[in-house]
Design a protein around this nucleic acid. Sequence first.
DNA 1: ATGACCGGTCCCACCGGA
Length: 259
Amino acid sequence: MRIATWNINSVTVRLPRLLAWLESTGTDVLCLQETKCTLEQFPHDELRALGYEAAVNANGRWNGVALVSRVGLADVVVGLPGGPEYEGVQEPRAVSATCGPVRLWSVYVPNGREIGHPHYAYKLAWLEALRVAAADDAAGSRPFAILGDYNVAPTDEDVFDTSFFEGQTHVTAPERDALAALRKTGLEDVVPRPLKYDRPYTYWDYRQLSFPKNRGMRIDLVYGNSPFAKAVSDAYVDREERKGKGASDHAPVVVDLDV
DNA sequence: ATGACCGGTCCCACCGGA
């Protein structure tokens, strides 16, 4: 079984790439983030033509997540139970479902913007709510994973230059502590292998030739419980999908499971 | 080549991304 996570940065603009990628990789379940569409705009018909159904949490121009599956979608939960609001709104940043033998979340963790910004406190509160909401499944015997854009680089090895990020979000101790607390529920970081260079970055800024210079970050993560992690036969970052005109600024992370 | 931001928006610039 092949599962993947991909911050697609607009499912509308990226639809031709999405369909071609699903076909070429034979992915069974894809977790999407930043769909940037309404529920009505989500391309259910095009995906159904390839044999996929989708569970979607979206409300317009920002954020938006989905689970796209050709191996079933059961017990769908839309949103993060107990999750915080930002400016009075529950943003579409989480959706979970059972896909065949595994329980999966697709999450888009808030960016945080700047240290001390209300969005930063919101980010930390959101990660804490995720920890609480996922604790039972994390400790369970069914393969379970939270995949998505965490907007946190777990270690200094996960950014191209630590000095570049001094004083910025994504690398601070409170953010990394929040990830550590999440792992402590029984989840481990399934680190993919890079297809080139030495580090499995998943994101490269559009600006300043970041991708050709490999000035990247590993912020798209797969946190799986022990039954999930034990079933992993391979994991890699598909950096090929970051290439060319019309790419997302994130590459998909692909995980193969023996389940 | 992987090549010097991009997507969305009621619109001629700005927000959000990280």
